[in-house]
Each structure stands twice: as structure tokens, then as C-alpha cells.
Design a protein around this nucleic acid. Structure first.
Lengths: 156, 156
DNA sequence: GATATTCAGGACATTTAATATCCAGGTTAT
DNA sequence: ATAACCTGGATATTAAATGTCCTGAATATC
């Protein structure tokens, strides 16, 4: 999995604590000492996916495009890592005996089905957790986190 | 995910229909028209993981090392793809404000926990499915499959 | 309007992992 | 003795991840 997933999940949680204000890629990168240009690529992907909004020019930057309650971890994984599942069925049964050339073995093959079923539970789990969930949980454990975060961004 | 996972899952199901007989890597590869030497590497990994037994020399080859009911899909994924999870926490919180240098953020970080929880459901699902499950399901749908498979192997 | 800031995105460069191939050495059935 | 077969290391090839750089477009501010 793309390391950018980790970066932008943290960035989205941080952005949820700075509502209504655009934060530049440079500052988001400086927060965790990440490579700016590369993080910017990931942020662009989130923008294309409708998770962030971006603005050019001075006072420009990125913000969450919607309520963090409506941004799931799956949304982010799909935006950064793409929609493909980890297990890719190459339909090797087509090379086996009694193969049906017209069959879609990605659907029919028992192994493919089992792997897809497992990935489905994974995705369901990720779909059930939102950026707001995570942010709330952080606040429960570390009440100062939002303040500390805003403070750090103010000094970048 | 390594494509070898697909190859060896199919191979293990096939082997479950040829109990007590060693099948060479060459024949296992020919069955699905796979690169022999590379498949052999995957089979070696399964052998090291205790899923297969191997024998050198004429009449040598690979067999299932235990009852297919006791070989889970997770066993195979771990043997081929390694034990690492897809999401790798790099502890970027250590670069953030108020970081605790002694903390293990792979355990403490809320994002890391959420991703690990999701992968856990995935692994639990895979751990709950065995090679025998899949083989039985195939037989239920295609009763001729074991016979066809044995027949094809006999002619390779 | 000029300027400085920032995002957008394409074109690279580098590193790492996946996907192989080959061979030399050890094992074993015949 | 011989041939078949697995083992594992070395190496090659390809694709993906990771990262940099630069041009162009948008825009806030003076």
C-alpha cells in the first residue's frame, strides 16, 4: 500500500481541526517533515476524488471538501491507492482443463470469490470509520491535540 | 499481492485431489501454463512454511503436508506474501508536535489501529477458509473437477 | 496591472519490489 | 551410474513506488 495513505489520513485529521481555513501543501508537509512535492501529488489525488478542495494563489491551499463524518478511510484508500483489490485474479483457470472461454472467472472461480469476500470485509471495515471518528478518538485520549495542531500550523 | 498466491492456491486445491502422490513443479506449472522455475520458487516457500512436503529425485515432487482442512488461505498468503500488513505505519507522529520518542506509534496511533483492525477482519476471514472448503465447493458445482484434474495430470 | 504565492500536472530520475531465468549442488529412484 | 528432481543463490528484466523539477494557470494583495 502506498505510503501516501498514511500521510493524507493524518493530514485529513489535522485539517478537520482547522475548519474553514486553507492549508498549503508546504505546511502540511512541514508538519510531519514530509517531501512537499510528493505529498502535494497525494493531495491532488484527494482533490480529484472530491475529498479535498483546493485553491490557488496566496491564501490558497487545501481544505476538507465535506464534513469529516462523511469521509471514510475507504474513501482515502481508494483515492490514493486506486480501486483495485490486493488479490488480482488472472483467471488461470482459462489455461486449465475444461475451461470455458466465455466464463468470467473473476466472478466464477471459488478462489477468486473467497479472496474477494475477505477483501470485502476489509473494505466494509474501512468504510465504517470516518476521519471524524478518528479525530474524536484522538481528542478523547489527548484533549490538547487540536490546540497543539493549530498552534503548530500557525508557526509553520 | 504476489501473483504466486493465486497460482499456489489453485495448485493446493489440485494437490488435494491427488493425495499421497508427489507432483513435480514442472507438471504443476504445465497445468496452468505457468513459468516452471518461478512457480517452483513459490512451492519452495510453501514447503518452508510447512504447507507442502517436497521430495527430490525421480518420483519426487510436492504434496500437501497435512490435511487440506488444516491449510487456511491465510497460511498461504503469509507463506507467499510474507507476514507484513498492507498498511505499514511509519510512525510519522514522531515527526509531529508533542511526540514521545519512546512511544510505539504502530500500537498507539489511532490511524494505525484503525488500519490494523481492518486488516485483522481480512485475515480472520482468510483464516476461516481452508483448501478443503474450496475444494468441496468446487466439487459441489463441478462434480467432475477432481477426475478431470487427475486425468489432466496423468497426461502431463 | 504587476507581483508574489500557490495549485495542477507532465516529465523526468531514483529506488525498491515483483517477475522471472539460469545454473551449480545435493538428493534419490531405478 | 544415471537421470530426474528439489534447493537456493546469482542475475536479469519489468513494473511500481517514491521523489524531484519545471512550466503554466489561478488568485490575493499592493
Amino acid at each position: 500500500m502506498n505510503e501516501g495513505v498514511e500521510w493524507v489520513m493524518h493530514s485529513c485529521v489535522n485539517l478537520s481541526w482547522i475548519p474553514g481555513e486553507a492549508v498549503t501543501a508546504k505546511r502540511l508537509a512541514a508538519f510531519y517533515n514530509l517531501p512537499t512535492a510528493y505529498l502535494n501529488k497525494q493531495l491532488q489525488a484527494l482533490t480529484r476524488a472530491g475529498i479535498l478542495t483546493s485553491a490557488s494563489g496566496p491564501k490558497g491551499g487545501f481544505q476538507l471538501a465535506r464534513d469529516p463524518r462523511d469521509i471514510s478511510l475507504l474513501d482515502i484508500v481508494v483515492a490514493i491507492d486506486g480501486p483495485d483489490e490486493a488479490f488480482r485474479c488472472t483467471e488461470i483457470l482459462k489455461e486449465g482443463p475444461g475451461a470455458d472461454a466465455k466464463a468470467d472467472y473473476t466472478k466464477v472461480c471459488v478462489i477468486s470469490q473467497a479472496m474477494r469476500a475477505a477483501e470485502l470485509t476489509y473494505r466494509r471495515e474501512l468504510a465504517g470509520r470516518s476521519i471524524a471518528d478518528l479525530a474524536d478518538e484522538v481528542v478523547r485520549r489527548y484533549p490538547d491535540a487540536p490546540g497543539n495542531t493549530r498552534n503548530r500550523f500557525a508557526n509553520l
